[in-house]
Write a protein that binds this DNA or RNA. Structure first.
Length: 315
DNA sequence: ACCCAGGCATTGG
DNA sequence: CCAATGCATGGG
């Protein structure tokens, strides 16, 4: 059992960045989140369910196959679940941050308890982001499913097949042709293979990056092929769980900021990043997250002409 | 048949 | 610092 500080919306968080309908790794059905993970090098299915009350929320987990579950395995599963559901984030602080911000206060109320959902590994976070570059999320999730079914190990539990996200070591052995056959572009294929090699060699050490400040992590990740600022910022949010990122390179977020916080007057990316930091400070990632949630709910909409590409800083 | 969608690397001013 | 270009699939 894992205790979580209120407010905590389990279902919304489990579903949020997981696109569960189309994908083969994360599943969320009947209020139950289930996914195959490597724990101490072996594959297990971990199931997570909400427990407790709104005032004292908690998560319970179960692991299959149950027979080889030792205390270290259970501990590894718990720490992974804490990471994925960003149990360390105290959303009371986020509520305080937007107390004087009418739009985000409204979004906070509508999506109260939505946590950032993190990917289990840096490798997966970066691969998913590379797959998502430029194309719609529907396409990206199709590509992800194909990659997972081609390169991931699977586990059968109760007649259901669950795929693990492929290991970096496995993907390091893939060829560009393998990935192109799944519909990836040449550039995505090359980037993912190089990333897998770096990760399996240990060149891409997330423990080392964990200690670094945002700009250092962005600079280091950007040295990898196929990773620019956009991808690195999403990795800071969606793997490292940092709360102070506003990915201003994102087409939607840029458009939303311009429309709702600058009266539709275009702003340079750099300027948006600076103003987001002034407004939302340490909780800028949550501003980004709740704007996305607002978009999915239809509350935040962008007219095409408001989505402005990189133009001169508005004067 | 188009057009575009939660970018990036490269090239050239 | 800024702008233009090619890239992949799938949905409208």
């Amino acid at each position: 059992m894992i205790k979580v500080r209120p407010p905590f919306a389990f279902a919304a968080t489990a579903r949020f960045l997981r696109f569960t309908e189309a994908e083969a790794v994360d599943t969320f059905r009947d209020g139950l989140y289930a996914r195959a993970f490597y724990l101490k090098g072996r594959l297990y299915l971990v199931r997570v369910e909400p427990r407790g009350t709104a005032a004292r929320p908690a998560l319970s987990l179960s692991i299959a196959p149950a027979k080889n579950v030792t205390p270290p395995i259970l501990q590894a599963a718990e720490s992974l679940v804490r990471h994925i559901f960003t149990v360390g984030h105290d959303l009371k602080n986020w509520q305080q941050q937007v107390a004087d911000d009418p739009l985000l206060r409204e979004l906070e109320t509508e999506h109260r308890g939505l946590h950032l959902a993190c990917w289990p590994t840096l490798f997966e976070a970066l691969v998913v982001s590379i797959l998502s570059q430029q194309i719609s999320t529907a396409v990206a999730m199709t590509l992800k499913r194909r990659v997972v079914e081609r390169f991931g190990e699977s586990l059968a539990v109760d007649g259901q097949t669950y795929f693990a996200f492929p290991r970096a070591e496995t993907m390091a052995g893939a060829t560009v042709e393998d990935l192109r056959a799944l519909g990836l572009s040449n550039a995505k294929a090359q980037s993912i293979i190089e990333l897998a090699r770096a990760a399996s060699r240990g060149t891409l050490d997330s423990n080392d990056l964990k200690e670094q400040d945002n700009e250092t992590v962005i600079a280091r990740l950007s040295q990898l092929r196929g990773i620019g600022r956009w991808t690195a910022e999403w990795a800071l949010m969606l793997y490292f769980g940092r709360t102070d990122i506003f990915p201003a390179g994102d087409l939607f977020l840029r458009g939303a900021f311009v429309k709702y916080f600058n009266a539709g007057v275009p702003l340079a990316e750099k300027e948006i990043r600076a103003r987001a930091a002034e407004r939302w400070g340490r909780w800028s990632s949550y501003a980004a997250l709740y704007l996305l949630a607002g978009m999915r709910a239809g509350r935040i909409t962008l007219k095409p002409e408001r989505v402005v590409s990189s133009q001169k800083a508005g004067a």
